[in-house]
Amino acid sequence: MATTIARQIPPTVGRRLAAWLHRRPAVRAAGLLAGPVGWLVVVYVGSLLILFLNAFWSRDAFSGATIYEPTLRNFAELLDDPYPGITARTVLMAALVTVTCAALALPVAYYMARVASPRIRNALVVAVIVPLWASYLIKVYSWRLILAEQGILNWALAPLGLRGPGFGDVAVWLVFTYLWLPYMILPVYAGLSRIPDSLFEASADLGARPWMTIRRIVLPLAMPAIVAGSIFTFSLTLGDYIAPATVSTTIFIGNAIFSNFGAGNFPLAAALSLVPLVIVLLYLLVARRLGAFEAL
């Protein structure tokens, strides 16, 4: 009897805790999730909440001190010039960039997913991902050098008697499209890879020409993936302020937020920050309808 007891492993604190947790799956799950969920709530939701609260304060124009009396003045100001114009321009740019990215991503992703040999496919996936490793600032400033008056583009076009677009709205559009294209290609590539070969064969058997197959099979099945990609391209464009400041003289919502923050008007900056937030939320609602979340 005594020998059997001695052979048993002594119940350490850790073992007892493990046994106790084993009997209580709910506590176990809570313990596991407390860290990440706490992080989400405190860091993500918490900062958003503070942002939201700030939008209701105002500030003393001269001393810059924040006045902690709830007011809707900042929101009223959002409806005043120039903010509606800036918002419209930003949304338009985001839409334009998204459409361009989709138009460019579709053929590339289709080639990668359905045409290219495995070796080329891998090379292309690497080529799409590598730019994401480079610093954002390096990429934006490279575009500055490309588009500059005495930059590479004008130098290359000079023999043809042409000139690049220079700095401006077109430059912003180009830079954004370049920056966010991988975020569109990757989900579309994943989406197209998932289309079963049998569908293409069936389409061909039924006499559909390639264009018909693309229109009736590929596009409808790729749509959720495109919408998923567009969530990235759209929301990233909506919030960016560095690219426009680097290659143009126009300003977008991000720049307006930045300049108000720079001038110390945090309440108005906070109210302005809620604009892209609301737009993205609306966009996400539409995207969910279109099945984008299943394609992510």
């Binding site: 126009t250 307006a256 108000n260």
Partner: peptide, 9 residues
């Protein structure tokens, strides 16, 4: 500040 935002936009 506001006028400057307006000019820039």
């Amino acid at each position: 500040v506001k006028a400057w935002t307006e000019i820039r936009s």
